Amino acid sequence: MTFKAIINGKTLKGETTTEAVDAATAEKVFKQYFNDNGLDGEWTYDDATKTFTVTE
């Protein structure tokens, strides 16, 4: 399945996608990506659209 992340950061904005077997796996991938890029913020997840949003 394809999962999307919308990034609303102070220094980084945009979208990225990942292929994962479930939402928990996708969340781990996205959180690692955000940690690697120095992002920290509020997380939400919309199961209907398979979209994570992080707002810094």
Rank of each mutant, 00 (worst) to 15 (best):
G38S: 06
G9W: 13
T17K: 06
D46W: 02
N37K: 14
D40G: 10
D47V: 08
A26E: 01
D22Y: 02
Y33D: 01
N35T: 13
E15Q: 10
T11A: 08
K13Y: 13
V21P: 14
T49Y: 04
N37A: 13
Y45N: 00
V29G: 02
K31G: 02
E15I: 13
T55P: 03
T16P: 03
D36N: 09
D40I: 14
N37V: 14
I6R: 05
T44S: 12
Y33G: 01
N8H: 11
T53R: 05
F3V: 01
D22N: 07
T16S: 08
T17E: 07
T55C: 05
T53W: 12
L39E: 04
F34D: 00
F34S: 04
M1A: 08
K28I: 10
K4N: 04
A5C: 15
D47K: 07
D47H: 10
Q32R: 12
Q32D: 06
N37E: 08
T53Q: 05
V54C: 05
Y33T: 04
T2L: 13
V21H: 11
N35A: 14
K31N: 03
K4Q: 05
F3P: 01
I7W: 15
A5K: 01
I7L: 10
E15T: 11
T55D: 05
K50G: 04
Q32P: 01
L39A: 05
Y33R: 06
W43T: 02
Y33H: 06
F30L: 07
E15D: 05
K31E: 04
F52M: 01
E27V: 07
V54H: 03
T44Q: 08
A20F: 03
V21D: 09
G9V: 13
I7E: 02
G41V: 12
N35C: 13
G9Q: 07
D46F: 03
K10H: 12
I7A: 08
E19C: 15
E27N: 03
A24P: 06
A24V: 10
T16L: 15
T49L: 05
Y33N: 04
T44W: 07
W43D: 00
G14D: 06
F3M: 03
T2G: 04
G38I: 08
F34C: 15
M1V: 12
G14P: 05
D36Q: 13
V21Y: 07
A24Q: 10
D22H: 02
L39C: 08
L39P: 03
Q32M: 10
T25K: 04
T11V: 11
G9A: 07
I7T: 04
T17C: 14
A20V: 03
T53L: 07
A20Q: 06
K4P: 03
K28F: 08
E42A: 09
W43Y: 05
K13T: 09
D46R: 02
T11Q: 10
K50P: 00
M1G: 07
T11K: 10
A20D: 01
E15H: 09
A48S: 10
N35M: 14
V54W: 15
A24M: 09
N35E: 13
A23I: 07
K31C: 05
D40S: 13
T49G: 03
V29Q: 12
D46H: 04
K31F: 04
Y45E: 00
T49C: 03
D40L: 13
E42M: 10
T16W: 15
V54I: 14
W43G: 01
D40C: 13
F3E: 02
L12A: 06
A48K: 09
E56P: 13
G38Y: 06
T25G: 06
D46A: 01
F30Q: 00
G38D: 06
T55Q: 07
T49E: 04
V29D: 03
D36R: 11
G41M: 14
Q32I: 08
E27Y: 15
K50L: 10
E27K: 11
D36M: 12
Q32C: 07
Y33K: 04
I6Y: 07
T53G: 02
N8I: 14
A23M: 09
L12P: 05
L12C: 15
A24E: 11
